[in-house]
Design a protein around this nucleic acid. Structure first.
Lengths: 223, 223
DNA sequence: AGAAGCGTCTGATCCAGATCAGTTTCCTGG
DNA sequence: CCAGGAAACTGATCTGGATCAGACGCTTCT
């Protein structure tokens, strides 16, 4: 029985799809696909966290998207058969379900709903990317950090007595590449926020002290 | 007979759609829809240029997208019936073709291809937005400007003896809102580039001196 | 013609964050 | 247990672009 976590644009409601899925477990650090590859499948994340990044002409790297449980990745490129303009790497151990694009096209003929689902997933992606873009363009570092926390909390946040807790398996450098900053600046911002009692780091988790729910976090990230 | 300009994700190939389109001409400066509106139609741009912008919590404004002839706008929100998270404004006089969402759903049942088209248009949008995001995060002002020129040139560029010419009806402030800068900085950058003989402004057109084709511009914008 | 208003331009100053240069953990393997 | 290497931290300096302040056009209205 196929069980995918809740997400926009997932396909689990559609019978007939699960027979074509192939499950895989990828160790931390492994690369799903590289910038420039042309692949014949796309995939869902079932467990773990991955990053989607892009290297520009001058060698600088930026993380353009996080893949959390329930996310669909690669649909856009797989569908119009263009080479991937980005790379995807496992930040933690990641469990995925692959779907061949050939199978997708077959299925889409029987279930037009598939396109509708992809479109929804795509819409979410556009909105998230836009939010991050405006944040990078107009807000300073601490705000951008809250926005990253918010994206993860929306999907994986757990309320605790101390505050909202999220998995946060990223290096300082990775965070820097998400928000358009340097690892030094990120380090300083974390130190500052911890000293101010806003944040607590334990292992690969971050707890936002005093934040009880998403709404409060939302207000912080949006201001 | 319906004629829409060439674009990714346009619907003109599909017979049966044009009967449901309503044409309108909007004067410069008029607002298509406002942040927060819930609309029951989306539209194609047939002529002219519009901007899609977002105001953040702290009052700052950013242009997240340009609408050029052939572009489809509002499909994502219209389809999942959520309020528009952005506003759209005519930068020049704009001629549009509207399609009611109700009609879209009807048509989509007969022509599953419609969803496919929307998905393609969405993919282009994601890629463009990602490109601008990385540019704002990692590149300095002149590079970001070249990137804006490139986006317009890809669709509306015309080679002239002096160089590649594009329509450019934007104020300094609008340019600033596209690239995450201030109008003063944009002014200085333009002055600089004109003094360096890279650029020429005539009326609401910009000519990139010495640039013969898109490839050359691409190289400049990507470096 | 004059006034008022907006957009462009220019100069002076300031500052968030980049850059450079270490030092200090914290692993991991021998 | 120590050596070596990567990541995290910290401090000092530098700079691109923001911010502030004003001057100069160019329209539009009276």
């Amino acid at each position: 029985m196929l069980i995918l976590p809740e997400s926009h644009g997932d396909f689990r409601r559609l019978s007939g799809v699960q027979d074509h899925l192939k499950f895989e477990v990828l160790p931390q650090g492994s690369v799903f696909f590289d910038q420039g590859d042309t692949l014949k499948f796309f995939f869902f994340v079932r467990r773990g966290i991955a990053k989607v990044s892009r290297i520009s002409g001058d060698g600088h790297q930026m993380i353009t998207e996080l893949l959390l449980p329930g996310d669909l990745c690669g649909a856009l490129c797989a569908l119009d058969r263009c080479p991937y303009p980005v790379s995807a790497t496992a930040v933690t151990e990641v469990e995925i379900a692959k779907l061949e694009t050939g199978a997708f096209h077959q299925l889409a003929e029987k279930f037009p709903e598939l396109h509708r689902c992809s479109l929804e997933g795509c819409g979410t992606k556009v909105r998230q990317q836009r939010s991050m873009m405006t944040s990078i363009a107009m807000e300073r570092i601490p705000h951008r950090l809250w926005k990253v926390f918010l994206v993860i909390a929306e999907r994986m946040g757990e309320p605790t007595p101390a505050g909202l807790r999220i998995p946060f398996p990223f290096s300082r450098q990775e965070v820097a590449e998400m928000i358009g900053a340097t690892n030094e600046t990120v380090t300083r911002a974390f130190t500052q926020m911890k000293k101010a009692g806003e944040l607590q780091e334990t292992g690969s988790y971050v707890t936002m002290l005093g934040i009880k729910d998403l709404e409060e976090l939302d207000a912080l990230a949006d201001s």
